[in-house]
Design a protein around this nucleic acid. Structure first.
Lengths: 221, 221
DNA sequence: CGCGCCCGAATTGCATGCAATTTTACCCGA
DNA sequence: TCGGGTAAAATTGCATGCAATTCGGGCGCG
């Protein structure tokens, strides 16, 4: 999925980024209607680039478009959300397995350093900083797989589940536990244990999912 | 990646399908320039839906767009093609593993029947029919994973490598060998052997890749 | 009170037009 | 002959306009 990143982006590209940002940080919740003229006026442009941006976002799965019915922020059933989490877990695990096999010594050292720097954040409970570092940590593993299509899809899935997993790290003890799981992943990758890296990562991401389920259940009540 | 399938598709959707078809069956080879006015006239429409279709295809990876520079059919370096094949192998293997764990008895029986019907085609060397059945076979495994995002991405990767793997089955003995490998995959899936299904599928798809490499090498010479 | 229908407003789909950038062709000089 | 520069042509990016479909509200009827 060749994301269009360019120093000279078109309006449609900028709009797509802006709308995606709105979805990811929750300003546009799942189910929200995406009106073409509204978005156009809001960004001071015509409908044409807005339509192109929406089409782009539709292919990424962030929004749903139905011919002549307009676009909405993707709203998933619990089953579909479950599928997204499973898919993400599988992609992360696949990247971890490939990373264990093909990361360079330098990449391995950097991954370890990154992981160790997160220990402090976990202990002091700095959720904000930990969350950012967590994204970087996982991204480093995607990159370590040395496979652009898989890395891009893993990243895209991570973004897609974003709107459904807000406030995850607030749950008690989540930071420390996450960090412990990272430790298992890192050890497996560093030692070149492909199967172990796969298993550890699946375990890690699945627990994140469990945390989500619990959170969702609380919210539903 | 929510592919837009509707009984009432817009012009842009139909155009995207038509262009994708042209790319997949080789009428539009990698590197081919995709001129907006040319495509518009060729299909008897204006540039607007063409542009929307191109944006859609760009997100799927089938074409490359650069702002103000136009669109071309994706042309990959050998390394990128290699990455695509590895990614496809991993996705197929992941689907096979999940299928081994979660296919219903009915799905398993159907998969077996499908596989057995392909034995005859392999023996008589009906490459055309075998090729079609092969796509259906792999699609059945995607579906058996019971995970829409993974299945869609696997399918999308299969399409994306299409332009680079033409005439694969023409290679001597390829059909019979493919069929034998399918046998290993099917046996593992039917017996619920997740790890075995994963390994057998990786093996199968990697050999397909080898065949491609050989083919590409011959063509380059 | 509920249900179907019709009409107006709102919204999407597509064509057309224009400005801006890129590409191509050509000319000139070295 | 080759390289550089300029101007015309081609192509993309975006705005605007119009037709068609969908959505919403009010009305009449049962």
């Amino acid at each position: 999925m060749a994301m269009r990143t360019d120093t000279n982006p078109t309006l449609a590209d900028k709009l797509a980024a802006a709308i995606a940002d709105g979805i990811l940080n929750g300003r546009l919740p799942p189910g929200e209607r995406l009106d073409e003229v509204g978005l156009a006026e809001q960004h001071g442009v015509s409908r044409t680039p807005v339509r192109e941006a929406l089409r782009q976002l539709a292919m990424s799965g962030l929004i749903d478009m139905r011919p002549r019915k307009g676009a909405i922020v993707s709203k998933a059933t619990p089953e579909e959300i479950e599928s997204l989490f499973v898919a993400m877990a599988e992609m992360e695990a696949t990247c971890a397995r490939l990373a264990a096999m093909s990361m360079t010594p330098i990449e391995r050292r950097r991954l370890q350093a990154r992981h160790e720097s997160m220990v402090a954040l976990a202990k002091t409970g700095e959720t904000e900083a930990y969350s950012d570092a967590n994204v970087a940590f996982h991204s480093a593993i995607y990159a370590g797989a040395h496979n652009a299509p898989l890395a891009e899809y893993a990243m895209s899935l991570r973004r897609r589940v974003g709107p459904f997993r807000r406030a995850q790290f607030r749950m008690d003890g989540r930071l420390l536990r996450s960090n412990q799981e990272h430790d298992a992943v890192v050890r497996a990758i560093l030692s070149g244990d492909a199967a172990g890296a796969h298993a550890a990562m699946i375990h890690h991401v699945s627990l994140v999912e469990d945390a989500f389920e619990a959170f969702a259940a609380i919210n539903a009540a």
